Simulated assay, not measured.
Amino acid sequence: MLSLLILAIAFAGVVLPVLAAAVAASRGAPDAAPAAPAPLGAAIPLAGLGLTWRRLRTVRTGRGERGFWVGDGDPARYTRAFRLAKGPLYEAGYSWGTAERSGGQVQPVCWEDPSQGDQVSLDAITAAEAALAADDVRIAEAETRRAREAELEAQLNGDARRADMEALQQSLRVKGWAWSRRKRDVAAALLAEKPGPGGAPRAAAAKLAREMVAEVDAAIEAVKARVASDQSHADWLAKAEDEDVRRAVHYATQILSDLDGDMASIENGVGWSKAHSHTGHVLAALPELSIIEATHALAAVWRHRRQVRPEFLRRIYGEQA
């Protein structure tokens, strides 16, 4: 009797639900949907702070199980966010670490604590995004303020800066022989720069141009002072006292300087030699030669006399030529 009762109960447990489902279907009632499994890693946003988050594994730690995530992509925004909102991000498990296939490179990671629930991570991302937005506003305001200050400063000092750049162009044009190749390259780059606020040259460019012109002028003056104080060419002194000789030898220095376009950087037997190039160009650029300066010119031109026409040499050196 007991076995028959058990069999009836079992039959009812199988058949009755089937019958109930058939009745429900006949009445148009929807079937009960099976429960879908929770998506893996739904506890943290899969995209946030400029990165795509990827779950690697579950790790058992001394504080319980943690889901270990890595953030793929450019970490620039995450870096800023971590600096601005480190507290809430760190509390939600976000930090920096290494992972497989990263070659030991530190990258954004997240140690997800399932016991905290989704909201902790969402709140951390929201706080970080708010901090980034506030920082963007601060940066934009600072840029606007700097731009206004630069425009005002250009209005006050623009003319002086333009004068510095014009002086640079003039020095290159008139005293180009006194400029080294490196300085000429720097000067060309300064002159090619786009103007700053208000159409004025940048303050740093104008300052460098002014300093370079001053350096070249100082170098020229140093050569002139050395020539004036050097008495090693006293044997030419008597000839240098003749005004016609001074004019003729001055013209000869200009001829040799015109030939010396390479500033003696190439040994081609044309123009000045390396020993006389700088001094020769300085003497040629002077409006006229003093007696002491003419003695140096006589000595220098004599060393390069093969490049000067014989009849012109006789005007300078007489029958000695």
Rank of each mutant, 00 (worst) to 15 (best):
S3K: 14
L5K: 15
L5F: 15
L16Q: 07
L16S: 10
L19M: 12
V23I: 13
A35F: 02
A38N: 05
P39T: 09
G41W: 02
A43C: 08
P45T: 07
G48P: 00
G48Y: 00
L51A: 07
T52H: 08
T61F: 04
G64W: 01
G64R: 04
T79F: 05
A81N: 03
K86S: 13
L89C: 02
Y90L: 08
A92G: 01
S95N: 10
W96V: 13
G97I: 11
S102V: 05
Q107Y: 00
P108S: 12
C110P: 07
Q119H: 06
I125L: 05
L132N: 09
D135T: 08
R138P: 00
I139W: 04
R145Q: 06
L152P: 00
D159I: 14
A163G: 09
Q169G: 14
S171M: 03
S171K: 05
R181G: 06
K183F: 05
R184S: 08
A189V: 06
L190T: 05
A192W: 08
P195H: 11
A200Y: 02
A206R: 06
R210M: 03
A219H: 09
R226W: 06
A228G: 06
D230N: 14
H233M: 01
D235A: 15
A240W: 03
E241L: 12
D244Q: 13
V245S: 04
R246F: 00
A248Y: 01
A248H: 03
Y251S: 08
A252P: 02
E267H: 14
N268L: 11
V270M: 09
H276M: 03
S277K: 12
E288A: 15
I292W: 08
L298P: 02
P310M: 12
E311F: 11
F312P: 01
I316K: 01
Q320H: 15
A321C: 13
